[in-house]
Every structure is written in C-alpha cells, then in structure tokens.
Design a protein around this nucleic acid. Structure first.
Lengths: 344, 344
DNA sequence: ATTTTTCGTGTTAGCGCTATCATATTGTTC
DNA sequence: GAACAATATGATAGCGCTAACACGAAAAAT
C-alpha cells in the first residue's frame, strides 16, 4: 500500500485554502458551505483527483457505507445481472455491497437480516422478490429503522421506496403484439404465485385479450412457478389440448424455453406452428433456439436506481416522505425474436 | 449504527487481562504470543463474540483488506457462480471484493488493473479465464508486486498460484462413459481457442478414444467459442454429415444446449438418436430439455480456494514459494442426465 | 445602534485498530 | 551467576476522516 500516492483530505484543504472540515462538508453535501467556497473546493478535488478513504470515513462517521442485498431464489441470471449492476454503482458511490441469500426457512432469513443490521451494520438494504414481500422481514427492518428499497414488490407499497417496471403494461403489449400477428388462441403460463409480478402480467394478458374481444377458455391458463420444469409440464398440457393454442405467453423466459422444448418434443415447429413469447430477457432468451421474443426488464438500471435511492439518504427518515415519491418505474422494451411470428 | 452493541478490541483486552496489542497479535496470527496467552485471548474473543472492525483495521494497517476480481466474458452463469462464491468467502475472512469486468480492449483492461492497484489498493487479485492468460496483465501485476491467483490458467503456470480442475481427466472420463454406452461415432465441439481448458478437454477426448482404439474422422471435430451460437453452427455441420455421429461431446454446456437445439431442428431425437454431453454443469444444463449430462466444475469451491490463497498471505513474497505449492486441483464429478444414453 | 438570529467556517477530539519502539520476561552460554 | 540473546508483552502515536462544538461575520430584529 503506497502511502505517498494517495491524496488526502488535508491535501485538498491546503490546495484550496480552507480547513479539512469545509472540504468534508462539500464532499458530503450536508452542512452549509457558501457557493464560492464550494466551487473552490470542487476544483481542488478535481485537480488532485481526490478519492475519499472509505475506511476512514466509515470509522469516523455514523454511517457504515455498507449496503445489503438480500435475494431469494428466482432465476440465477436475474440475480447475477442485478448483482453486477449494484456492485458497479455501489463502487461508484463509495459503498460496499454485502450479499446474502435468504433461506427458504423464515427463521434463518430473519437471522440473516438481523446479522446484516447488527454485525455488518448496513446503512440500507435492497430486497429482491420474493423476499421483498415477507411481512416479518419488512417488520424487522421497519422496527430497526433501517432504510430499505424493494424491487418489484407486491404488497404494502406505502412502507418503503421501490423500483419496478410496468409489468401489467408490458404483458398487455406483448400479448397485443401476438394478437396483431393474427393469433387468437393464446395460452398463458402464470408465474410463481408468491411473486406479485405474476399477477400483473396475467392481468395484462387478460385485458389485452378482452380489449380485442377475444375470449380465453380456462384450459388455456396454466399455473407455473418460474422454473423450467414447471413450464415444461404446463406447456405439455397446453399442447395436448384438443383445440391447441397457436401462441403461448409464458410469464418468464425459463418457462418460455420450456414451452419451446415441449413443442420440439411434440414435433411442433416454432414459430411456424406455435409462437412462444417470454418475459425478462435473461441470457436464456438468446441461448435457446429459436431465440425467444420477450420483454426486456432493465435489471441493471433497476439495480442502479435501488442503490441510488439508498445512497441519496432521502428515505432515511421514514416519516417525512410522501407516498408519491416511493414509486420508481423504469421502462421496458418489447424484443421481437424468432420464437414468435405472424400466424399463417 | 448502534455503538453500544459492538465489542471492541479494548473489551477483549480487558476481559482477558492483557493489552490491546497482544489481542491484535493473536488475531493477526503474526508476532509472537505465548501459547498460554493466546488461549486466554481466544477464549475471550469467543465469549464476547468479538468481530474486528474492518475499517479501523484497514485504516491502521498496511493492508487494504480488499481483493479484486477481474473477469472476462465467458458464460454469465459461470461468472455469477464464481462471484457468489468469492463474495461469501471474502466476507467470512473480513475482506471485501471489488469486481471489474475486463474489456475486450487491452488498454482498457490494463487501466482497470492499474486502478485496482493504485486507487482501490487491493491486497490481491483473482483472474478468471481468459484474462488470466494475458501476458501484459500478468506483467503489470508482477511488476507492481501484487499477489494474484489465477483460475484455470493456460500458460506461465510457474508465476502465480492457481486453482483448476483436471479438465483432461474429466474429458477423458465423460468420453469413456459415452464409449461404454456403446458409442463409437463421437464428435467433439472444441471450446474457445484462447481458453486453455479447451485444449485439455480436446486432448482428454482424443486420448479416451485412442485408448479404446476408436479413430476419429477429422470432420467430427468442430471449433466452437463457448457460445450458444458457435455451438449451433458447429452442431449443424456435424448433424448434416453423411456418417452422422451418434454422440456429441461439447466443450461446455452452452454448446451442448446448442447441439440439442440443432438436433431438434433436424428432427433427431435426443438421446435416442443422438447423445449429447456438455461441460461445467451451469444452470443451463438443467434448464434445457433434455437435461444435459455434463461434468460438474466445483466453481464455488474454486472461488473459495482462490480467496483463501490470497488471504493466507502465503504467496505475498513471490521469491520464497516453491513451484509445487502453486497448483491447486479440485475434484470434478460426472453428472449423468437425460441427454445421453446407451446406444441402441 | 444594539441585541438576536442566522450562516459559514475552523478547532478539537476521537472512531478502532496496528506500527513502532520500549520494556519485561524468559532462556542460553561460558 | 553475569552477560547476552531470544521471546513475550506493553505504551504511545497515529492512520484519514467526521461529530460536536466554538467562534466570528453577516443579516435580521429590536
């Protein structure tokens, strides 16, 4: 560790002719500094390419500069994408990320949460679905007064800031695209019942059909669990129906991939005899053949937003924030690939 | 941040009736402490459930307690698995992980490495393939005298510790398993030429055939790049051969998945008319249908080992270590699933 | 013009730990 | 048992930063 190289707060202070404390205030954006001094300091920071020492900061301040990320067990690629995104933005803001997997067991999950709070002393927590909807976890955090951000939560939307995308609208649009391609017999594989997005996507699907005056027979709706396996058995049922659907909308890519497999197994050509669309645009969507038409979720952007919300400190005082500021919706994108096509 | 809760070094010192410095010495395993005092202190540490404050440590010591992880662009699931593994073990050892993606551009990659060294001041670096074989990166690290561990490296094996598995042997065994299932016409899709493991797997494949007196026509060997796409075009060629192989051994799961897709496209049943085996046992292997028979790489264990090697400090002085200590081989496992079967 | 309030800035102490050196306690040699 | 080396422990001073207060200057109120 080369000590000569590092610029310290003192160097910046000397260079701009003020005290260390003033520089500190400028960097932490709290406290009051006149515009003139602030500008002066900022110039010095830039010129010296100063980067604060996270450890010294953490040691001296009441903040830990740690954020926690708690994930459950959705698709691996979803978690890893989110993870990479948040690591990147944490680093940019001088924070560190402590990652923990929530166990299936509620008691263990709560233990993890408490350890993050008491031992690691995180400044805030990011909760991925479906952990973000476990009431006991939310209670623990609220009681401990730890700020947290939830990703695509399902319930109790007023208790914390959250990032999400418009699952309903995306489902509506991708369904409508199938309709525009001439499909009428469209089946749906619902996502995991514990994940709120599943319901929204299902609703979007239904409403798209309704607004186009298309009715859905009940046997066109199958319950899945976001896993390949569940998708496979759902698709098998759909494809063995008397009146086989010409298109399947699966609530995520894993189940869409499974639908394609099921089609292969039954010698049904995709997309000529069956169109399949998924949701999420995980790497899987372009790793199976044919590539899956899907909805791109901006996972990295969601991670960035989640980190930013915590870092900003805007929500540190839970009583002072208005409901309207809690919701942060990011844009999606419909991706047309080879697994869906015009009905012939 | 609740200050009352945390046990400090001082508390441990008081509790065991020695000075802070002695406790520090016990914890850091350097310096000399008598066995009696060490025992006393260790008891106190346990009783008080003491956890050292990483930031204070970092601030006061010459170490940064940061490790860097540099990855390139192999399969997402490989990276994310490794990432999760190393995060876990870093946390357990009180280190933090700084992750950086190596750009395709050499200059940018070197810039990342230098930033990790100079700005973040990492204590050590983990290099994933194929970054672990870029001479300029290795040179930079050697010059800066930063310890690093490489994962499945290809070349210059004497310059740093590394973790790997026996790719050759694993390839040999999974090929032999196909042979034992009655297969004679076995094709191979080679992995990315820049990744050393590709060659080892290819060699293991060849030697398994040779030792069973089976000859391979040259058209049974296709070059791939570890991507689904490259695997698809390779498999297409293999399956359109006059004398079609009855089995394909792909150098990773992505290309095995592609081979299965290609089979579907050509109306070839897997595994009844074509057996396919892969390598890595990433999540993909059990997300396509049929599930892929493959070699399980112990990715998380490799991550753990890599972190441990750096944390141990055994290799901080590059001149003092013997060649024999550098190599760390972990066990693999052959996983038989539904994509391969007895030849009928 | 004086008091009060605000704002902007500097001063001091210390966060929890380790490096460094000083000191105390052994053990070893002749 | 004196003289030395080796080993074991303690005291002190920071690492780079911020909290908490102190203080002067400007603005507002009397």
């Amino acid at each position: 560790m080369n000590k000569e190289l590092k610029t310290r707060l003192q160097d910046v202070a000397k260079h701009s002719g003020v005290s260390m404390m003033t520089v500190s205030r400028v960097l932490n954006k709290n406290g009051m500094v006149s515009d003139k001094t602030r500008a002066k300091v900022q110039v010095a920071v830039k010129e010296l390419n100063y980067r604060p020492n996270v450890s010294a900061r953490r040691l001296a301040s009441s903040k830990s500069f740690f954020l926690g990320l708690l994930y459950d067990n959705p698709s691996t690629s979803y978690v890893s994408q989110f993870l990479l995104g948040s690591l990147k933005f944490c680093r940019a803001s001088g924070y560190h990320l402590v990652v923990d997997e929530a166990d299936n067991d509620l008691a263990k999950t709560l233990k993890s949460v408490k350890e993050l709070i008491n031992i690691t002393q995180v400044d805030g927590l990011i909760l991925l679905p479906p952990v973000c909807d476990i009431p006991e976890v939310l209670d623990t955090l609220t009681t401990a007064n730890i700020p947290f951000v939830r990703v695509s939560p399902n319930s109790q939307l007023h208790i914390s800031p959250y990032v999400c995308m418009d699952d309903y609208q995306a489902a509506f649009e991708i369904t409508e695209q199938l309709i525009n391609q001439g499909h009428i017999n469209i089946a749906h594989i619902i996502g995991h019942p514990d994940v709120g997005a599943s319901r929204l996507r299902y609703q979007g699907f239904l409403d798209a059909l309704r607004s186009n005056k298309i009715s859905v027979p009940p046997e066109y709706i199958e319950q899945g669990y976001f896993t390949y396996k569940s998708g496979l058995s759902a698709a098998q049922k759909l494809l063995s129906l008397e009146n086989r659907p010409s298109a399947i909308f699966a609530s995520n890519d894993d189940m869409a991939a499974a639908s394609i497999s099921a089609a292969h197994m039954n010698n049904i050509q995709v997309p000529s005899a069956l169109s399949v669309v998924g949701f999420d645009d995980t790497s899987l969507a372009s790793t199976v053949w044919p590539h899956i038409s899907t909805v791109r979720q901006p996972i990295q952007e969601m991670a960035k937003m989640a980190v930013e919300l915590l870092v900003s400190g805007k929500f540190d005082d839970p009583t002072s924030t208005k409901k309207s500021d809690l919701r942060h919706v990011l844009d999606f994108e419909i991706i047309q690939r080879e697994s869906s096509a015009e009905l012939r």
